[in-house]
Design a protein around this nucleic acid. Structure first.
Lengths: 347, 347
DNA sequence: ATGAAAGCGCTAACAC
DNA sequence: GTGTTAGCGCTTTCAT
């Protein structure tokens, strides 16, 4: 029932090869013929069948995006940038949500084997050597966003430096007892942000008790990682623990993500403490929420990261820039708002 | 290079037809043969090529989701439910973002013609008769989420009743001067929420000045609709206008969406008024943000809507329930928090 | 129960 | 320049 290349060919009085050439605007075709075919195409409202094209061309004109948990503003924002860049290039996007880390491997296998996509983008997912090898073998273009692997292009943010600056900001404000509320430690960003935190402290000769370094791992539910720890709940619970430290709780918190900072703030409020008077907090990410609650934070250029990721991937796919591996690292920027300032938090 | 059905067949010493049957677990196949083939499949780590399968089977095992602007927490939450339900059914999801309403038609055409998907889900998009006809003609399953069209299944929420209850809540609290901050008026939810608002007022014999009914249309940027008006900015601007009404500004606001309510709150704060003491506000949606800022709102079961949408669509696709059209309408639920209560807003 | 063969709708190599 | 033909990797009759 749907119109095929054959009908177009017949109606235009040419061979299917010619139609195909017009479709792929092949250089050498008589202008007259092209016009004729084009007219019929318009008239019949024809569009090539994507599957057939994909099969013949061995190209799907589609990329896969693998998102962990598909939750969290960070991913949404990233997706937005990706989607936009992709649609500008007329590429389709298949979304693979890995809500369960156990399913991760299965998802990769699927993507790798099914050949539904010309390339893939993974968000915040550490790449196992095994999977890495598979991508190499299959020669399936891959770029990592918010994660790193020497063999593949990656788009990251300077987490170490960002964390360093965030903590410096706190130190400059006069705080001396600064705790960190981190995500799960297998996450690279979590590790890097921790080093930045440590560097800033060391530089000022500050030493924190071990209880001040808190990772969401300790708070993890079961043995299984169902999330990355960068969420409101872990922030809340971490802060409760910090507040329960008899005697000396910290006077400032560096949260490794805005959403955790939100949880932290909630816990602080519950205990009747004021922000920033009694306790300052700075987050990381600068998601939309941050502005709404007046959170001081380190801004990541999330949208831009998404766009660049697409550009890189498409370049690989087109073989354009078969060039060297690109490891692009964006810089972060401190956005000072009420939770660390001297003004009363307004919201 | 990639392993095909032929290699599997050869290695298993059977014909490709047999392998195919095993793949599609055809009923009548010798258990021994099946086992043998299965073993080779595992061993070779074989998975059928999606495009080839799609071409031959005339089924893609994929659905398309068309999202307007792909912005806003409401869509994200919906997408989450959809993605989850889909992955349970091992269906893939192609995301079409329509950031520009002009591109809407083009997007539909593309989806319709390319035959990349077995069915489509549209989120909050009014369906033009022309497009509707195309779907009918192509017999492409379609279900509308947060929109309505008599010919297609739809998943909506009882906007009228929800708005009614929200405003009743305000009235019960003793408020008499209640304004509505709405989205663009071509959106069905916007229209329905307006009627609910009116009904509640009428029921109590309340009459509002025209300036109290404010739609984001008036605030619209250009002639072109680049968004649906359900955003923070329009809420903020609407509230500024309301506050500028010399003499009598409203004492309560019903915002047609939480995100607009957030904007409203921002504007109110800027003017030094307190919430809820000087002004009460209730939103609509109950996005995650609502809880964070203590916003009273009408909850929509967003995730469930997404799941049901997928179930409906899949049923259509499988021809299972070739049954009657389903127009499922969820009920909303009032969630009372600080912005309308008597307690001071905590956050 | 299983092999052989004919498509599915398109691209690309090969002729003319 | 343009028609013809052989695949792309799988499903699905049709035989056997």
């Amino acid at each position: 029932m749907p119109v095929t290349i054959y009908e177009v060919a017949e109606k235009a009085g040419v061979g299917i090869g010619t139609v195909s050439r017009v479709l792929n605007d092949s250089p050498q075709i008589a202008p007259a013929t092209r016009a004729k075919v084009l007219k019929v195409i318009k008239q019949l409202n024809f569009q090539p069948h994507a599957m057939a094209q994909g099969l013949a061309r061995r190209k799907t004109h589609t990329i896969g995006v693998i998102v962990p948990f598909f939750t969290g503003y960070f991913y949404v924002e990233l997706l937005r940038g990706i989607q936009q860049a992709l649609s500008e290039n007329k590429f389709d996007l298949i979304l693979y949500g890995v809500d369960d880390l156990q399913k991760k491997e299965a998802c990769f296998k699927r993507v790798l084997q099914q050949r539904r996509v010309d390339g893939v983008l993974t968000l915040s997912m550490p790449l196992s050597e095994q999977i890495a090898a598979e991508f190499e073998r299959r020669e399936l273009p891959l770029v990592l966003v918010d994660a790193f692997h020497p063999q593949f292009d990656s788009i990251t943010v300077n987490n170490e430096e960002g964390a360093y600056q965030a903590v410096r900001h706190l130190i400059n404000l006069g705080h001396r007892k600064i705790a960190i509320v981190n995500g799960h430690f297998e996450s690279l960003p979590a590790q890097e942000r921790l080093s930045g935190y440590k560097r800033a402290l060391a530089e000022s000769g500050l030493v924190m008790p071990a209880e001040y370094l808190i990772t969401s791992d300790a708070l993890r539910e079961g043995a299984v990682a169902v999330n990355d720890g960068f969420n409101k709940e872990t922030g809340y619970r971490a802060m409760r623990e910090l507040l329960a430290l008899n005697g000396s709780h910290p006077e400032a918190i560096f949260a490794a993500s805005d959403i955790q900072a939100i949880g932290v703030i909630g816990a602080v409020r519950e205990c009747g403490l004021r922000i920033p008077e009694d306790l300052a907090v700075v987050g990381f990410d600068d998601i939309e929420l941050a502005e709404l609650v007046g959170l001081t934070t380190m801004r990541q250029p999330i949208r831009e990261m998404g766009k660049l990721a697409v550009d890189c991937l498409l370049a690989k796919i087109n073989g354009d820039a078969e060039a060297a591996k690109v490891h692009h690292r964006f810089n972060t920027k401190l956005i000072v708002r009420e939770t660390s300032g001297t003004r009363r938090q307004s919201f």
